[in-house]
Design a protein around this nucleic acid. Structure first.
Lengths: 219, 219
DNA sequence: GAGAAACGCGAGCGATCGCTCGTGTTTACC
DNA sequence: GGTAAACACGAGCGATCGCTCGCGTTTCTC
């Protein structure tokens, strides 16, 4: 059980020094995996197919990823990181005071844009038979987004009971995901129409709870 | 190529006379398949697992179904038939005149109840890597439900442009499915809370388009 | 330029899955 | 009771999939 590596760093016990070529290959493989996952979902996607899509051999793929799950996990992590940036800059307490219509535009537009540019994100989330670690990743992101939404809702309507706030938050996010699926399922004008329709729906749902006008959030 | 069967009926060219025992086995196998599909989705469900869950051997399973897809298709057909009955008795022109709140109760309650009693229905619909014939089935049901919803919307608001009507219909159904997923993901009091929340959401979305009051639909 | 390590290949291993087949049992029909 | 068909079994076949391994190539380091 001697872990006698050259130990330049043993924080992860994997002292593999990547070359620039390797980093490029990893990106190629993740891009290929994104395509294949989008096409067939996680379970039905074969590692050989991912390697073929990336134009490399199966052996090369396993030079960079220990197993199939790790590919999805790494892809998920990168997407989560970028998605977290997006919702972090937009689901802020400062925006809570905006008129509801503007608030929805401000929040939804970047989220929708990100998902249109990265359709594999939704595909991975909706793949029901995903492995354990991927589900944990999603749960984390899910919770962090819902916490932000819940915070916004709480700021706009402090009189809401915790239960109602939770339900409103969860339903809001679920409706958003449904609208997103519809948006990604169309293109061009239709896509924009459904984006507008989603905003209308959320507006109609949230207006009675949060009010439509600008709200001062100072103590 | 001589199809010289005993031809009591050659409408499907499959003159297999089932015994009562066989019909019972089929039901057992479909129930088992429902459980396994619910647990792991279509692709990850193995026919051996279905047979085991039903308490029979793999060979027995294939006495009644030519392949794995046929199991899902038959299960889907039976569920579609019952779901069609449900929405057929509820998505009627007569109900179009009800006040919006009552309309939503009348339509949603039976649909929700059916899906709570048959969670495999949603599981099959949401399994993204389903085989072709199953997708066709779903598309048929999907279209027939949307046609009914579209009809109701058209009756309540004849001034809506065809495009807006389509978008409203599609979004309404998508929001319903999202709420349904949330409802099936909870139990007891929470489940009822999300059912109420879904109605609130649809009310908020549809009220500005359809109006809230009772509407006379006579020419 | 020599050695080491990272990169790259692809045949193929072991496991799993959908499905078959030979054989034995139960049921329907005369 | 006898016959044919339906039902039931379970070992195992062929295909596929995740993944490995041996070996050759490129890149880094000195």
């Amino acid at each position: 059980m001697s872990e006698s590596t050259t130990d330049p760093r043993d924080d992860t016990a994997k002292p593999r020094r990547r070359q620039a070529r390797g980093e490029r290959r990893i990106q190629q493989l993740l891009d290929a995996a994104a395509h294949v996952f989008c096409r067939t979902g996680y379970t039905s996607a074969s590692t050989n197919a991912i390697a073929r899509e990336a134009g490399v051999s199966p052996g090369t793929l396993y030079q960079f990823f220990p197993n199939k799950e790790a590919i999805a996990v790494e892809l998920g992590e990168r997407l989560n990181r970028r998605m977290t940036e997006t919702h972090g800059t937009v689901l802020t307490p400062e925006n809570a005071g905006l008129p509801l219509g503007e608030l929805l535009d401000t929040v939804l537009d970047p989220m929708i844009e990100f998902n249109c540019a990265n359709p594999v994100f939704l595909a991975l989330i909706q793949s029901s038979d995903a492995p354990g670690q991927l589900l944990e990743e999603h749960a984390e992101l899910h919770d962090s987004i819902q916490d932000r939404i819940s915070e916004l809702i709480g700021l706009r309507n402090p009189d809401l009971s915790p239960e109602r706030r939770t339900h409103t938050t969860t339903m809001t996010f679920a409706l958003f995901k449904a609208g997103l699926t519809l948006i990604l399922g169309h293109e061009g004008t239709e896509r924009e129409a459904y984006a507008a329709e989603l905003k209308t729906a959320l507006y109609g749902y949230l207006a009675p709870v949060l009010g439509t006008e600008a709200v001062g959030t100072r103590p």
